[in-house]
Design a binder for these strands. Sequence first.
DNA 1: AATGCTTCTTGCCAAATGGCAAGTTTCGTC
DNA 2: GACGAAACTTGCCATTTGGCAAGAAGCATT
Lengths: 190, 190
Amino acid sequence: MEKLINYLLQFGQLNPHQIELIKSKAITIKLARDHFYFEAGKVQREVAFLTEGIIRICYYNRDGDEITKYFLDENNFVVDVNSYTLQIPTVEYAQAITNCELVIISRENMQELSMTIIGWDAIINKITVKGMADKVNRISPMLAEDATERYLNFMKKFPNLAHRIPQLYLASFLGITPTSLSRIRRQISE
Amino acid sequence: MEKLINYLLQFGQLNPHQIELIKSKAITIKLARDHFYFEAGKVQREVAFLTEGIIRICYYNRDGDEITKYFLDENNFVVDVNSYTLQIPTVEYAQAITNCELVIISRENMQELSMTIIGWDAIINKITVKGMADKVNRISPMLAEDATERYLNFMKKFPNLAHRIPQLYLASFLGITPTSLSRIRRQISE
DNA sequence: AATGCTTCTTGCCAAATGGCAAGTTTCGTC
DNA sequence: GACGAAACTTGCCATTTGGCAAGAAGCATT
């Protein structure tokens, strides 16, 4: 819960009264490894802030292959903005790949906070834009890199994450097969 | 100018008075092919709405290679949100690859519109989030595709655009060499 | 500790892509 | 219309990556 508040404070000011209000609107939940926080077909009716663990966002392409779109670690919001904003079903899955702790605020409570706290919308918008920009800037350069560079950059960005992610999922994110990733890892260690 | 208004109206309501106000704050400019709308090192002090033409966003990686990050066509905003929001220098270039027409609103005028028009911020935020989500959703699946699929999907998405883009830039966007793109095109035409 | 399941590694070969260089085309300028 | 520069195509070969299958290792349950 404190992690959420600290994160929000990076994007705007909140007085103690407002902080208490936010806390009263949020609940903490646990999500066990391998379980899904949301699944394709459902409509997002809440936002979740990841305070512990790693979640991967994935979907299925026309060939039925499972594609890992990106990973989220601590201090990130886990929400399909499109589904949440427009109240339409998401097409993605959010799966815990470690045990996770999430702070949840329902859509109704978000709207109450929006009406009560001056500047709340501005904070949320900054966070939303930053979150999406991070994704673009992380994924975009990967197209111009070969698999080894993609892997090394991922390792550099998430040094503590690579060992916790099943190679299957990491390979899918990097756009290569698990076999290739295995070879790349061997080659690097030599 | 009408294109901008029509686009805004997709994201919220505006009455005739408000529409006139917006028009009075905006100016239309032309940008000749190959010229840059913005360049790395400068701070974004305005937003631009592309009403005619195609712009590509590119940058240079550590090896000095020029990487095309994405293309923008009509009815898209051309702005580095990070630079505009935080007033820090951008690291990207926006280059017209056809003659372009842009509708410009300065940051000061944007702030005036924000203070004058109820719901303006909400409209802009929806557009911003949609724009970024489009980029993520367009680029992300490409990692899992081979070069031919990436090319065909690009053609499907922008059927009228592929012929207008120099192959050099398109190849860079697809993450392959111009040579490879040439071969792929030949193979498809057989 | 044994079992069985999943994940990871490795080898073999095929397919895709890159690097380089030469030839061809396109396009703008004079 | 001639010229020159840039972009595009093609051939040759090296490198990267994928596909498949077998073996090895890790991990949970019993």
